[in-house]
Design a protein around this nucleic acid. Structure first.
Length: 479
RNA sequence: GCCGCCAUCGUCUAACGGUUAGGACGCCAGGUUCUCAACCUGGUAAUCGGGGUUCGAUUCCCCGUGGCGGUACCA
């Protein structure tokens, strides 16, 4: 059996799309699963839609996701000779022809056909132009394209690797434009020529390509080439079930990346949108995916992008990280949120270890741990525990502060605090009593946070007592 | 309009003729807990409709319906 070779062939018209990443992932997985090659090709034949930086963005994000490609990327705009020769070959074989029809005429034609409820396709107006007529047109420098001369009867049947047998009636197909008047090839010509040239064995691409696949197969036949296997992936959908697009949320991989989603989570999530392992397993790292991936388990129907589940995956992987890794990942987010003193690694480690279970995504982190870096705002009305009066809360806070200040031990660790505070808490109404809530709130300024003793252990004796006193004094000031 | 693809809980999906239709996310309840998170336990909720085929259809066939995609000198 010959080598399995797949490719990802994005058009650099914008940032890498999450759907594109999934297509890349499936191609990559299929190649790796078979010990084959995964290639990258940049389809930049539409000169009007190029976006600066798009190629780099695609490459960066593939790398971020861990999808490495073999060889240098193939750039279509650098291979115009190849396409021109291919088109000429077809013209010489009378399987393609030059067409001088204007866009206006084509538009008119379409409208008439639609009005008559006929399939809309090119009427073959230029199909039988004589050699002198073509020569005259070219001599006059009239804009022209090269069209594929499709057989006009019969059917094209092929077996899609995910959909099974698919059949198209040739009478409904168009004499597709192969070369545009600007001298660049269209997708159809370029992708067929390149896939053949790159010896691609399996074309795994989005479902939007299914309707043009018969034309591609006919092109392979026209060239006398063997067509690759095709697998058309189900679309990724918006919540309203339309094709996933910008208007209902983030679609650029970049956006998930900067929001603080881990590549493990994003990749795991998109893996399962359109593929399943046939078991109940949900958590996959790259090597496991490679091992288990197969085309047979790809789904046929579109999948709605479900952000809640992505968040869940992110939480799973975030909690699997070591504190060290998390500190490294977190620093840029803290810095950009204006938290400056992040150089004390030991301190950061303690803070993050405490909050790890609460991180949804990395961009949430600054807001979550801010109070470890500057004294929190205290809302006095939130300070009292249940029916407690503010003055009582203040009183308790002073007592705690005093108690902690009188700590005989040198250490101020969580173990010390627990053993020493035990009696104190018991004497003041127990764990469900009036101590823990005001203390925790005074230290964190948050209705929800880690426990007060844990926070105190990280803050240290001095800062802990200072915050307790400060919160207590706010109550006095108000009364 | 024409062509094509698709159709199981709200969402992602399993069940390749015989299951109390399974799992996950979400949601709800309980446990744990000063709070939150995490974790554990339980619950909620689905085969688009109609015809066939079959002893038996989620599963196979046909017809509807619905959704989506394509119908560009865009990919």
């Amino acid at each position: 059996m010959s080598e399995i070779r797949t490719r990802f062939a994005p058009s650099p018209t914008g940032k890498l799309h999450i759907g594109g990443l999934r297509t890349a992932l499936y191609n990559w997985l299929y190649a790796k699963n078979h010990g084959g090659k995964f290639l990258l090709r940049i389809e930049d034949t539409d000169r009007t839609r190029l976006v600066e930086g798009a190629v780099q963005n695609i490459i960066d994000n593939l790398r971020w996701a861990g999808l490495s490609y073999d060889n240098e990327p193939v750039i279509q705009s650098q291979r115009q000779d190849l396409y021109r020769q291919a088109a000429e070959e077809l013209v010489n074989k009378k399987l393609a022809y030059r067409c001088f029809c204007t866009p206006q005429r084509l538009e008119q034609l379409r409208q008439i056909q639609q009005a008559k409820k006929l399939p809309t396709h090119y009427d073959g107006h230029c199909r039988n132009l004589s050699a002198p007529e073509v020569a005259a047109g070219l001599a006059d420098q009239r804009p022209s394209v090269i069209r594929f001369a499709l057989p006009q009867h019969g059917t094209v049947t092929f077996t899609d690797q995910v959909r099974g047998e698919v059949r198209f009636n040739l009478a409904t197909l168009d004499d597709q434009i192969l070369m545009k008047s600007d001298g660049f090839p269209t997708y159809h010509l370029a992708s067929v020529v390149d896939d053949h040239d790159m010896k691609i064995s399996h074309v795994i691409r989005g479902e939007e390509w299914l309707p043009s696949t018969p034309k591609h197969i006919l092109l392979y036949q026209a060239f006398g080439w063997t067509a690759p296997h095709f697998a058309h992936l189900p679309l990724l959908l918006n919540p309203d079930r339309s094709k996933l697009s910008k208007r209902t949320g983030d679609v650029a991989v970049d956006e998930y990346r900067t929001a603080g989603y881990l590549p493990e989570a994003v990749v795991n999530f998109i893996l399962l949108m359109g593929w399943n392992p046939g078991t109940d397993q949900e958590l996959f790292r790259l090597p496991e995916m490679v091992q288990q991936f197969s085309l047979e388990h790809i789904n046929k129907s579109g999948a709605v992008f479900n952000r809640d589940k992505l968040d869940w995956f992110n939480g799973q992987y975030l909690r699997q990280k070591s504190v060290d890794e998390l500190v490294t990942l977190a620093r840029p987010y803290l810095l950009s949120a204006g938290i400056k003193n992040v150089d004390d690694t030991a301190y950061l480690q303690q803070v993050i270890a405490l909050e790890q279970k609460r991180i949804g995504k990395l961009s949430d982190l600054p807001g979550l741990i801010e109070y470890f870096f500057s004294p929190p705002k205290i809302d006095v009305s939130a300070l009292p525990w249940r029916k407690q009066k503010p003055s009582e809360a203040a009183q308790i806070l002073r007592e705690i502060s005093q108690f902690l200040g009188n700590f005989t031990q040198k250490d101020f660790t969580i173990q010390d605090l627990e053993t020493n505070m035990k009696a104190f808490v018991r004497d003041h109404g127990g764990a469900n009593g009036p101590v823990l809530w005001p203390m925790r709130y005074a230290l964190s300024g948050r209705p929800a946070s880690p426990g007060p003793l844990e926070i105190a252990a990280v803050l240290g004796r001095q800062e802990t007592c200072r915050r307790l006193e400060r919160a207590a004094s706010l109550v006095i000031d108000q009364s």
